[in-house]
Every structure is written in C-alpha cells, then in structure tokens.
C-alpha cells in the first residue's frame, strides 16, 4: 500500500522539475531555430542586446511573482519604472552623488510598495484596485514633475554602466543574477518565503498558525516596488533620460513572464527561475521576430497565443496530479 503510494508520488515531483526544464528547453529550442533561420541572431552583439532587453522585465517579473504568490497582483510596476527614471535623473542632474541618487530612488520604490501594503491591509482595498490607482497617478505625478518633458541625464559614467559588459556578459544581465540569487534564497530557503506561500494559500490558517499576515503582505509589495525602482534606475542608465511615460505596459509583460514561468494567479504556486525563463522567452520571441522582419503587430499576437498555450499546458499538468 505505502510503497505503491510512494511510487505514485515520484513521477509527480519529476514532472515539476520537468516543467522547469521544459521552459529551458523551449528557450534553447528558440535559440537554435533562430540561429539557423537568421545569421544575425547568434552574433555576440545580438545576444548581448537580447540579454539587455530581457533583463529588465526579468527583474520586474521576480518582484511581481512575490506578490502573485500571496494571491495579489501589482499593476503599478511599469509606472514605478517610469517614475523612478524621473527621480534618478532629477537627482543626478541636481548633483547628488550617483550612489546616493540610486539609493534614494530605491527607497521611493520601497515607499510605493509600503503604500500598496497599507492600502490592502489597512484600507481593505483589493490589490488590483490600489495598484491600478498607483499606475495611473504615478504617471501623472511624473508628468507634473517634468512638465511632460524628458530629462536628459548629464552623467556619462551613469549611462556607461548599462552599456558595459563584465566578463563578456552585459552588466544588465549581471543585475538579473544579482537580484535572482538572493530572491531564490529568500523565496525557497527562508521562512519569509514560506510565509508568502502560506498566506497565498490560506491567510486565515496562516494567521492562526502565528504567521504575521499583514507584515507578509507589506513585504511582498515592498519587494515588488523595490525591484521596479531598481529597473527604473537601470532603464534610466540605458536610455539616458528620465521620462515618466517610459515602460508603458511593462507590468503586463512582467505578469506574463511570471505566469509563463508557472506562477499561479490564484496564489501559492511560483518560483524565481520560472519568471526569469519566462521573461527571456518573451524577449527572444520579440528579438527573433524583429530579425525575421515579422510585422511588429504579429509579435503581440504571438505573445498572446504563447501565453494561452503555455498556461493551458501548465494547467493540464497540475490537474493531471
């Protein structure tokens, strides 16, 4: 009886690992196909470019995943990115040292996240609503601060960072690793990570078990805000301007990456490596479509279809359990 049951359990777990591998295989497959189909794909230049393109969404997706695991959603991340480019640009142009400008910008992201936590925990607003409100108003605040103009950043060192590479790998991609490893340890090997899952699964049971549910929710949104502000700094460095309308729609790309990476929008299911792979799959599709001269409109359609297909198969896999 028990041996039978254990035998039944094993394939399930392999299945899970398989899904991670499937995503990786999909990514590799895309790369192989594109290398054969277009000569320019495999060039060092293009790969660097692709890594840069994917990196920022990947970092956003990690923060987003923390929130989604608790059963919430953070629609504000794109707006936070745009807003953060403005903050960091203004600070640098005002002569604030770069490290301090970055630190202050990150703190702004933390503050926005805390505000979301406050809205959800204390005001009882649904996450969708409070972050939607921030999405629209942050863009407005940014436009007011800049009078609707872009701010050019007068600092070459700041801009050089995102264009440089270290050990042949673009700095922006190193930033994914910088965020990804602590995020992985946090989510899978710390009790705070466990609490994110337990709150997303059953907040009441978690509360009765002594988990501080409110603090856990604050934490999730704060981390998402922090990731978004960090991406804002990276984006400002890459494009050399501060502009509140930048990163339009990135929140949806981050959510899509997360979901492609196996995160369940019902909460309590998710990982760090999944969203990272998801983000780079999306980036590869966009990059490849450009190289193949596929109409940009088609790219959007392909992305949509891909989300449906991947999540459908993921759902089949879960139900198959």
């Amino acid at each position: 009886m028990s041996t039978e049951a254990i035998a039944a359990e094993r394939p399930k777990r392999n299945y899970n690992a398989l899904f991670g591998l499937t995503l990786l295989a999909l990514l590799v497959l895309l790369w192989v196909i594109l290398s054969v189909a277009t000569p320019s794909f495999a060039s060092a230049n293009n790969i660097s470019n692709l890594l840069r393109q994917g990196s920022m969404i990947a970092i956003l997706a990690v923060g987003q995943t923390f929130v989604i695991i608790t059963g919430g959603i953070d629609l504000s991340v794109g707006a936070v990115v745009g807003f953060a480019t403005v903050i960091v640009a203004m600070l640098i142009n005002a002569g604030v040292p770069i490290y301090l400008a970055i630190l202050i910008t990150l703190l702004v992201g933390v503050a926005i996240g805390l505000f979301h936590g406050f809205g959800i925990v204390k005001m009882g607003l649904p996450p969708f609503i409070i972050t939607l409100a921030t999405l629209t108003s942050l863009r407005g605040i940014g436009l007011l601060m800049t009078n609707g103009n872009s701010i050019s950043i007068n600092n070459d060192a700041f801009q050089l960072f995102s264009r440089s590479s270290f050990l042949g790998v673009p700095n922006l991609f190193w930033m994914v690793i910088l965020v990804g490893i602590p995020a992985y340890i946090f989510l899978h090997h710390s009790r705070w990570g466990r609490y994110l899952f337990s709150v997303g699964s059953n907040a009441e049971a978690s509360r009765l078990s002594g988990v501080n549910v409110q603090r856990t929710i604050y934490m999730a949104y704060t981390l998402s805000g922090l990731c978004a502000a960090f991406v804002g700094v990276l984006l400002a460095s890459r494009i050399g301007i501060g502009n509140p309308t930048q990163a339009e729609g990135w929140e949806l790309q981050a959510i899509a990456s997360s979901v492609i990476g196996g995160t369940s929008l019902f909460g309590a299911v998710g990982s760090v490596h999944g969203p990272l792979l998801g983000a780079f799959i999306l980036a590869t599709i966009n990059n490849g479509a450009n190289l193949l001269n596929v109409n940009a409109f088609w790219q959007r359609i392909i992305t949509g279809v891909l989300i449906i297909v991947i999540v459908y198969f993921d759902g089949l896999r879960r139900r198959g359990k």
Partner: peptide, 9 residues
C-alpha cells in the same frame, strides 16, 4: 478547510 490548512501546499 477555511482556517486550518494551506490545502495547496
């Protein structure tokens, strides 16, 4: 179900 367990964990 409602208060005791995180069922999908």
């Amino acid at each position: 179900r409602d208060q005791g367990l995180c069922l999908n964990l």
